[in-house]
């Protein structure tokens, strides 16, 4: 509860022009790698994306060491309860517009730990809690995969920046 109050006090007035900010963001994004209790599979794939083989710096994507310099958080792992306060602090440090790319099946839907006692069950459940704490996340993209392929991560960044339309759609068929 004290944490919530602290965050509410720290909230800056939202007087940002989001549309203009998103237009600028299409050029190049700086990413911050946020591990929230992942098995390191997805982290190695993130590392793979940054190597000369996939070389995302040709798109202007650059890894930064501080969330205060970043536009996008590359979130891997199922967000364990132990890691949650740190995730809150890291996401709060990212300036608006705040973008999150959830990488891997753990970050998207909780993975094989979706109903475990020590996890909350993926980013889509955490977003509501973050909203209650006063942390707005402006755009999220989910990249499924265990671990997600490096190409899938590049595709996910394109979806996140609205350069591509996502391929998957909700489908309901009668057997």
């Amino acid at each position: 509860m004290a944490m919530v109050k602290f965050l509410a006090l720290n909230q800056k007035p939202s007087g940002i022009d989001l549309e203009r900010a998103f237009k600028r963001l299409k050029r190049s994004v700086w990413v911050f790698h946020l591990n929230t209790g992942s098995c390191n599979g997805c982290d190695i794939e993130v590392l793979d994306v940054l190597t000369p083989y996939f070389d995302v710096e040709r798109f202007g994507i650059k890894l930064v060491v501080s969330p205060r310099h970043a536009d996008v958080a590359l979130l891997t792992g199922p967000i364990t309860i132990k890691a949650f306060p740190k995730v809150v602090r890291a996401l709060q440090a990212i300036p608006r517009p705040r973008l999150v790319l959830a990488i891997g099946s753990c970050a998207v839907g909780g993975g094989i730990w979706f109903d475990s006692y020590s996890t909350i069950g993926g980013l889509h459940r955490v977003i509501d809690i973050l909203k209650d704490m006063g942390i707005e996340i402006d755009r999220v993209a989910y990249v499924p995969g265990c671990p997600a392929r490096p190409e899938a991560i590049i595709y996910g960044v394109a979806v996140l920046l609205d350069l591509l339309k996502p391929k998957v759609k909700y489908r309901r068929v009668k057997a």
Partner: peptide, 12 residues
Amino acid sequence: EFELATDDIASL
């Protein structure tokens, strides 16, 4: 198929 990234969780 591996290009499954989306911005809406309901479409998964």
